[in-house]
Simulated scan of single mutants.
Amino acid sequence: MLRLTRRPPRSTAQTVLIPKKETAMPRQVYFTTAGGPEVLHLDEVPFNNPGAGEARIRVDAIGVNRADQMFREGRYFYPPNFPSTLGYEAAGVVEAIGPGVTEVAVGDSVAVLPAFKLTDYGTYGDYVVVPAAALVPRAADSDPVTAAAIWMAYVAAYGALVEGDPVAKGDHVLLTAATGGVGLAAIQVANRIGAVPIATTRTPAKKQRLLDAGAAHVIVTSEEDLGQRVQEITGGQGVTTAMDPVGGPGIVEVIKTVSPGGRLLVYGILDPRNDMSQGLPTVEGIEVSLYTLFGVTGDPDRRQRAIDFVTAGLTDGAFTPVVDSTFDFTAYAQAHQHMESGQQFGKIVLTVQH
C-alpha cells in the first residue's frame, strides 16, 4: 500500500462530518519518477479526512489534461514532489467536509476546477481530498463525464480572452493547435464575446471538425503558410490576441501574426525542444508572456466571475464541452498515451466505477 506524504497527516478529529464507514481502501494514481505513461501506477492509499477548508469527494469522472502530462514528465512550471499524484479536474459527490467549509455540504454533486498545486492535491483517485474553494456545484442529474471536462478548458479561455484585458468585439483571435480542450473552449468563448476565432491544425482531416466547432477560419499549417493566411483573413491587420500551447521554434511564426500592440499568450510548452531557460522571445510592441489560469482561480473574486461566465454559457447553450473519448480509471496509462498521440479532438476523461 502506497502512503503519499505530500501533505501533513490528518487527524480524524479535524473532520466535521463523515457520513459512513468505508469498506474499501481508496485507490490513487501516483508516480515516483518523471517519465512517460509507464511511470504511472495505481495503488491503495489510506483514507484522508479533510482538514480545515477541505472536502473529500467520491470521484465519478476525471478530466485528463496536457498539464498532467507535463507534470508527469517533469516539464511543468513547477516540479513534482515524489511520490506524487496528479490531476486538476474531476466530478463527483461530497462525502465529508472539514472545519469551516461553507461552500459545499455532504451529498452535493460537484466538479473540481484547478485552484491548487499538484504538489498539494490531485484528482486521479476514486476518493480524493481537495480544497472546498475548488469545488463548483452541479445538478445532481448532470453527466459527470461532461462536468469533468469543463473547468480547466473554459476558465483558461475565459482568463485569456475576457478577464483583465478583454478581447474586443470584432477582434481576430488566433488559436494554434486548437483541437485540444482549451482550444475548442476558446473558440466558443471567442464567439460568445463577438470575436473572430482563427484556428490552426496540422491535420487536414480536422479542418471541417474545427469549422463545425465554431471556428470562423481554419488554417492547416501542414499545407498553408500561417502568416500569409492570417494576413489574408484579417485584411493585413493581424490578430490582436494569439493563444499557443506549443511553443518551440514555431513560436516565431506565431508572433508574426500578431498586430502591433497585440499579445501572444503561451499557455503550454508542449514542444520538447522548448528551452525556457532562455525565456520567451521579445518583440517590440507585442506582449509575449506565459499564461496560466491560476491568476483567475487563485483569486476569489476572479474565480467567481469565471464560474458565473462559464455557467451562463453552459446554461444558454453557447458552451458545449467536446469530449473526445473516455477510458476506465484503471486505463490511465492508455489515456495518457492517447493524449500524447495527438489524435484526440477535445477532452479525454477517465470514468470511475464504484
Rank of each mutant, 00 (worst) to 15 (best):
R56L: 14
T179I: 05
L184G: 00
G279L: 13
P166E: 04
F319R: 08
P281S: 07
G238F: 09
A318L: 01
P137I: 04
V128A: 03
P321N: 06
E103L: 03
N191H: 00
G107Q: 09
V254G: 00
T123C: 15
S109V: 04
G194M: 05
G100D: 10
N81Q: 12
E340F: 04
R7V: 04
H217R: 12
R302V: 06
D120G: 01
S277R: 15
G248E: 05
A186R: 00
A312C: 06
E38L: 02
V349D: 11
T146G: 02
A91E: 00
E38C: 08
V258A: 13
S277M: 11
V16T: 12
A148R: 09
R7K: 04
Y76C: 07
K169Q: 15
A215L: 02
N274T: 04
T311H: 08
P197R: 10
V173C: 10
T315M: 01
R229L: 00
H41V: 05
L4Q: 10
S84D: 10
A67M: 01
V16D: 01
E103K: 13
P137F: 03
G295R: 01
N48Y: 11
A140D: 13
Y76M: 06
S341P: 09
R305K: 12
P166I: 04
G298L: 01
A331I: 13
R58V: 04
I269Q: 11
T297Y: 09
A148L: 09
N49W: 07
P9I: 13
F319P: 12
P19Q: 15
G227P: 02
